[in-house]
């Protein structure tokens, strides 16, 4: 079956390459900086999500905070002494922009999905239970230490 002429093919390849180059030039790497992440809470960090310890339960029955472990890469604001921190993310099945509700207080960001290994810019505060009065799923419950509350979570390009 004839799908294209030999003369037209090099032109097509060049065009596709051009589009790809232009598209990649237009996209600036996400730094995660916005007016929310730089102002909310008392701590701001860029941190890598180390793992997702199990499945996030559905929100059909309850709203909850799920504890995630991050490795702190940069502290932008406030003070954090630990290398790894435990952060409560509210209803993490939802994109951050849809997570806020009547019970959560301010929660948001541009992150659409939590994936292990990704880097986030986070506005945090502690202790968690001063900001969230509801269920917490904590797979690290046997590890002592502060649990932070994530107000804002933005994606950062690695």
């Amino acid at each position: 079956m004839k799908v294209g002429s030999a003369r037209g093919r090099p032109f097509g390849v060049v065009l596709v390459l051009l589009v790809v180059v232009v598209a990649s030039c237009k996209r600036t790497p996400a730094t995660g900086i916005d007016q929310h992440v730089t102002n909310l809470g008392s701590i701001e960090v860029t941190a890598r999500l180390l793992e997702i310890p199990g499945e996030f339960p559905s929100n059909e029955l309850y709203n909850y905070a799920f504890i995630l472990k991050y490795r702190v890469l940069v502290v932008h604001r406030g003070e954090i002494k630990e290398e790894d921190i435990l952060v409560g993310q509210y209803n993490p099945r939802k994109p951050r922009s849809d997570a806020e509700d009547d019970f959560s207080g301010t929660v948001g960001g541009d992150l659409t999905r939590f994936r292990a290994g990704d880097v986030h810019r986070l506005a945090l505060a502690a202790p968690l239970d001063e900001y969230w009065m509801g269920g917490i799923i904590d797979k690290y419950f046997d590890q002592k230490g502060v649990r932070y509350w994530a107000f804002w979570t933005n994606r950062v390009d690695k």
Binding site: G135, I136, D138, F141
Partner: peptide
């Protein structure tokens, strides 16, 4: 860690409720 369904005992000496921090789940 108590966060909902709090109940005070009839004699006033105790509370019970659903709490975080006692295990993986509430």
């Amino acid at each position: 860690g108590m966060f909902h369904q709090l109940f005070w005992s009839p004699d006033g000496q105790w509370f019970t409720g659903t709490a975080n921090g006692l295990g993986e789940h509430w």
